[in-house]
Amino acid sequence: MANVTLDRLRKVYPNGFVGVDDATFEIGDGELLVLVGPSGCGKSTLLRMIAGLEAITSGELRIGERRVNDVAPKDRDIAMVFQSYALYPHMTVAENLGFGLTLRGTDKAEVARRVRESAAMLELEPLLDRKPAALSGGQRQRVALGRALVRKPQVFLLDEPLSNLDAKLRASTRVEIARLHRQLGTTMVYVTHDQVEAMTLGQRIVVLDKGRIQQIDTPMALYNRPANLFVATFLGSPRMNLLQGEVAARGEGLELRVGDGVALPLHPEGGLAATVRGYLGRRLTVGLRPEDLHLTSAAADFSGRVETVEPVGNEAFLNLDCGGSELIVRLSPRHLPQVGQTVHLGHDPAHLHYFDPESGRRLDG
């Protein structure tokens, strides 16, 4: 096991495109860290730089205490699991599992022992004599994981390993990867574009966009205190509601005038109150998670017209038109309003998120 340190890592392609810009962070020894972001954000490029499959333009990369910028991939003591399973079709499961060790000249008895050990861990023992064509997608993915496990590397790198699986298999394999990490205690770097995978797997998450790190923190810290509008809307399903309007006085307090007679009461506290008051007469963006809105028959903060109702079993989502702004409300599926109905909404002022609409940054007191 080892920690991985990235110090101002940068990747610039020959055409001038910047794939990764100034990536600086440390992956702790035994940590499961997730790199997440939309397609083209630089997460796979960053992973390939750690693996040695992409040349580093500038900056320094260390695995443990060793600088590895110019170290060949085979000498970095890492194992990588790709999106494609990359199994040899003419080899059995046992042969695929042990192939990397055999190439390194490992003793046959040791290869057999490690293959049995990995197969038992991943419940592959009944499949050892089969070839990949006789396996399901989930079984092939477990073989790809097992092939990395047998090497006992310092660092595991996983590049969207579940994207080829159906929803049920993704969920079960995700649990399997989390269990393996707890059991092995090995440093893992996991790349995904799926924010649910990121939130459920990562001990910490690195959120990337356009090659730059937007925020690094634990899953719930990112969810509860996003650093900017990109993080706020990328993490969370459904995404955070955003209301933009002008800040105005409301008695001794403040409100956000969204439009069409809709005004959201604002109740910032402490130092944040002075910060928000500085936006009087100016535009401000306010965020609300769908679960922080509720229907009310009492004096309503504001109202919205029901556009669609989406029951999904244990919960339902209302899509509302609120003064020209779209809102999503997460509700219990019982006693849902009808499409076209006007509903009154309440909110918890303590759960409002305030953002500067120009820079996108979070406002703090």
Rank of each mutant, 00 (worst) to 15 (best):
A120R: 12
G360T: 01
G323C: 05
G281L: 12
V231I: 05
T106V: 15
D21P: 08
P226C: 11
V276I: 13
G59V: 11
T296I: 05
M121Q: 09
T200A: 05
T5N: 13
V258C: 07
V36D: 04
R239W: 06
N164F: 11
R239V: 06
L222M: 11
N96T: 13
R282M: 00
L243Q: 03
P238C: 10
C41Y: 03
E65R: 15
L53H: 09
P73I: 03
P73T: 10
K11Q: 15
V196D: 00
L272P: 06
R67I: 13
L180V: 03
R283V: 01
T5A: 14
V115I: 02
D129R: 14
D356S: 04
D301C: 01
R114K: 14
G324P: 02
S39D: 08
R330M: 09
M91I: 11
L33T: 10
G323V: 04
A94Y: 04
N3W: 04
A119E: 04
L97M: 14
T285Q: 00
S325M: 04
G281E: 09
L33I: 15
L149Q: 06
V143I: 08
F230E: 00
G253Q: 08
D166Y: 12
R140N: 10
E123V: 05
A248M: 04
E269K: 11
L46V: 14
G236T: 02
E117M: 06
L280Q: 08
L336Y: 06
R130N: 12
D75G: 11
E176C: 09
I63R: 08
P89D: 13
R48M: 14
T218L: 06
N96W: 06
V262K: 02
T186Q: 02
N69P: 09
